[in-house]
Simulated scan of single mutants.
Amino acid sequence: MELTAKELKQYYKEIVEMIEEKKDYLCELDRKLGDGDHGVTMSIGWQAINDKLENELVAEEDCSKISITVGKTFLSAVGSSVGPLYATGFLRGAKEIKGKTVINDQDLAQFWIAFAKGVKERGQAEVGDKTMIDTLEPFFQTLEESFSESQDFVRSFRLAVEAGKKGMESTKDLLSKRGRSSRLGERSLGAQDPGATSAYYILSTFQSFVETQVLNVGV
């Protein structure tokens, strides 16, 4: 499959809409572990990105430049720790699609693997720490393995998102080891990590988006 720059921008618009829908739920999750503002933080970042999508990025055809702008805009809009994490992810992904106006299966796989690895490297967290890495590491490992074997991006991405979902759900049974919520100790058990949840939503939104694209072109 292939995605044009216009379609990539449409995907980013879909994240904007999804975050608005999930904002209250993400804050509800965060109230159990932190400041209760994760949904608001994500909304601030994506509303800033939406402004770029509707203005300076309208005519942009370079997929890499679009993703660089997304990452930098999120970073400047969001002051919390999640800002540098997503910014690193989108900037690393952008390197994999440099100068491309259309991105194919190989490009998409490389983009998402670089994105997730970039977040992990910047955040220095491990699986089991009750963070977004509990979603992203099983996601990128599965995507890497499945795509290298099958070269079928849509199927590989679906499997990777399923692995990420299991990782997200596993955070309910983990003690927080990073950030403010680590002070809660045993009280952090039973609560799903909001960062792991929003990361899963961003990935699952892309899964839905590409599967719709495939259906639309009749592949």
Rank of each mutant, 00 (worst) to 15 (best):
D35Y: 06
T69W: 01
R183Q: 08
S150H: 11
E169I: 13
G93F: 03
G123A: 03
T171Q: 00
G99D: 10
S43C: 10
L91D: 01
Q141S: 09
D134H: 01
Q207E: 15
E7D: 11
A199I: 00
A114N: 07
G45P: 00
R178N: 04
A5C: 13
V219L: 14
S150N: 14
T101R: 12
N104Y: 07
L91V: 14
S182E: 01
D105W: 06
M18W: 03
G39T: 03
S80Y: 00
D152E: 13
E144Y: 04
N50F: 05
G123H: 04
E14N: 08
E28D: 10
E186H: 08
M168G: 04
E54T: 11
R31K: 15
E145D: 12
S148K: 15
G89F: 02
E162A: 14
L26A: 09
T41D: 10
N55Y: 06
K6T: 11
C63P: 06
G167I: 00
K166F: 04
E54F: 03
A125E: 08
E28T: 08
I97L: 04
R183E: 04
I202E: 05
K165D: 01
K166A: 12
S76L: 13
K177F: 03
S176C: 12
E21C: 04
G190A: 09
F157G: 04
D51K: 14
C63T: 06
D30W: 03
Y200V: 00
E144A: 10
Y12C: 13
L189N: 11
A191D: 00
G179T: 02
T4S: 15
L53A: 13
K172E: 04
E121K: 09
L184M: 15
E145Q: 10
Q47A: 09
I19P: 05
A109V: 06
F206T: 05
G164Q: 07
F157S: 04
E17H: 03
L53R: 11
E169H: 11
R180L: 14
K72W: 05
T73L: 06
L75M: 14
Y12S: 08
Q124C: 02
A116F: 03
F209H: 10
D152F: 09
N216T: 07
G195D: 04
M168L: 14
T101I: 08
A196C: 08
